[in-house]
């Protein structure tokens, strides 16, 4: 077992895990953060995407011990003082989800994407979030949600 500290959503979390414990399992089972979903367990669907020092990664392809000491943001950490982030609000407002299982992954991916590219074109949106699968929506309202999130972010006081 390895005693490691993960900085999850700004809080240092100490956890003792075997070397092969996946970050997704560590978050869900050891830390009780079940907002990160596991859809395929091999890095295809993107439902388990979290931010590692701000960059989107597949938590199902990451061993927890390899990210010791790093900053991890999960869907539970996207809101500020209980207020959903602009990306979260946009997905709710634009009906960018149905069953919602893929949503946390899309939210993390989109959050990082819009930080890099705050005013993306249509093509850039498609490419930016093409690594996440959704089975319910046919993606049309997810595309709208990303554009709406960009608008809401632009309106946010800095």
């Amino acid at each position: 077992m390895h005693d490691i500290t993960l900085y999850v959503n700004g809080i240092p979390r100490e956890v003792s895990v075997p070397a092969r414990r996946l970050l997704s399992d560590c978050l869900r089972h050891d830390l009780g953060l079940t907002g990160t979903h596991v859809g395929c367990e091999h890095g295809v669907c993107g439902a388990c995407t979290v931010l590692l020092d701000g960059e989107p990664v597949r938590s199902c392809l990451t061993f927890a011990v390899t990210v010791a000491g790093r900053e991890i943001t999960t869907v539970e950490g996207l809101a500020t003082d209980g207020r959903p982030s602009p990306v979260q609000r946009a997905f709710a407002e634009c009906h960018g989800l149905q069953c919602g299982f893929c949503t946390p992954g899309f939210l993390c991916t989109t959050t990082a994407f819009l930080r890099e590219n705050p005013a993306p074109t249509e093509e850039e949106v498609l490419e930016g979030i093409s690594g996440n699968l959704c089975r319910c929506t046919g993606y049309q309202n997810i595309i709208k949600s990303v554009h709406r999130a960009a608008e809401l972010l632009a309106e946010e006081p800095t």
């Binding site: 907002g35 869907v75 959903p84 709710a92 919602g100």
Partner: peptide, 8 residues
Amino acid sequence: GTLKVTGE
């Protein structure tokens, strides 16, 4: 929708 976007 809110619970689904907050992960709750």
